[in-house]
């Protein structure tokens, strides 16, 4: 197990390097211009000088090398400095966003809380709803509950979030005035009122996303339960006279959870990636919104860093999912 994990970790390094190169080259083929949003009243020579100040005059290789050094060497030093109060990174140039002219990682760290709150919470809520629905649907296959559950989960991933989101805003913020239509990222939860305010502004985005997550996971759960319910060991357990509750909730559920747990683990990177559309609709200025605005502004260092962080998380959680699988399912042996 350990050797497998280490081997996979080592193997993922070239994968990640390759991905970072692919992303970098892709971005640098861009015909766009970071100065396009500057008003046309600003003369062309000024724009040219601004471009040079961004380092656009250098060749692609030099820029890639610089980004690698900044991301893999200087940024970790900044992190160490932050935690231990050391001064390794002092005076060294970090990955700088073109748009804000400030370190990319600082902004990412600033954006993470709201993304984790909203997207993370919706993931947790989604999983918590999905599991019981999946279990009951499978246990009573083709019952009314199953049909309704199937229909709702189908709706969940068929109706696009940009449609449900807008609909919710109009009904609940404009018509009824129950929830705010704009997410306040500066709210600090330190009292009962602020907690309620936080709850109110989270309800709609969390609901939209949780519905989507729950639909997918409940389908997995149902399928996995169905696979197991007809297995011989279930028949054996029943024959032994175990109560139905014990059979389903202990024997079947435990085995059915194996693939579902890995699926849940695989979904975690998306939580960090934020939900681009939902964040846009509910004005939750998180990671997803950061990505889309930097794309629109042609802020390449920011886009490059963000996509690479996503890639890193995806590779990491893939590994975690595989290891989990091995730990949970004794039939799997990685040797």
């Amino acid at each position: 197990m350990l050797t497998f994990t280490i081997r996979r970790l080592v193997l993922s390094i070239p994968t990640l390097l390759f991905i970072s190169l692919v992303i970098f080259l892709l971005l640098n083929l861009a015909p766009g211009d970071p100065m396009a949003n500057v008003p046309i009243t600003v003369p062309d020579e000024v724009k040219q000088r601004m471009r040079e100040a961004l380092g656009l005059g250098e060749s692609v290789y030099v820029r890639f090398y610089k980004w690698m050094v900044q991301f893999f060497w200087i940024e970790p030093q900044v992190l160490i400095d932050h935690y231990f109060g050391t001064t390794f990174s002092e005076g060294k140039l970090r990955v700088i966003s073109w748009q804000t002219r400030s370190p990319v990682m600082d902004i990412v760290v600033q954006r993470l809380p709201q993304t984790l709150w909203v997207v993370g919470m919706s993931y947790v809520v989604g999983v918590l709803i999905a599991l019981p629905i999946g279990i009951i649907s499978a246990y009573r296959q083709y019952s009314v509950f199953d049909q309704v559950g199937t229909f709702i989960s189908m709706l969940g991933f068929s109706v696009p979030t940009f449609f449900t989101g807008v609909l919710l805003i109009v009904i609940f913020s404009v018509k009824l005035g129950w929830f705010p239509s704009i997410y306040d990222t500066t709210l600090v939860v330190n009292s009962w009122e602020t907690f309620l305010a936080q709850l109110r502004q989270m309800v709609m985005p969390v609901f939209v996303l949780a519905l989507y997550n729950a639909s997918q996971i409940s389908r997995f759960m149902r399928a996995s339960m169905l696979d197991n319910l007809n297995q011989d060991y279930v028949r054996t357990a029943r024959a032994k006279g175990l109560s139905e509750k014990v059979v389903v909730l202990v024997h079947v559920l435990r085995n059915s959870m194996i693939p579902v747990v890995t699926v849940i683990a695989l979904g975690v990177p998306q939580v960090f990636g934020g939900a681009i559309i939902t964040e846009q609709v509910f004005k939750v200025n998180g990671i997803g919104q950061l990505l889309i605005t930097s794309l629109q502004a042609n802020d390449l260092p920011m886009v490059q860093t963000l996509t690479f962080i996503f890639a890193l998380l995806i590779v990491l959680f893939n590994l975690i999912a595989d290891v989990l699988y091995g730990v949970l399912d004794p039939r799997i042996r990685y040797d």
Partner: peptide
């Protein structure tokens, strides 16, 4: 296949559309 699965797809899709729409 694994490599492609490891790519962040939605951001990548956005990037691709942004980059190549003009050409």
């Amino acid at each position: 296949t694994d490599l492609f699965l490891a790519l962040p797809l939605l951001p990548l899709l956005l990037v691709m559309v942004m980059l190549f729409r003009a050409p």
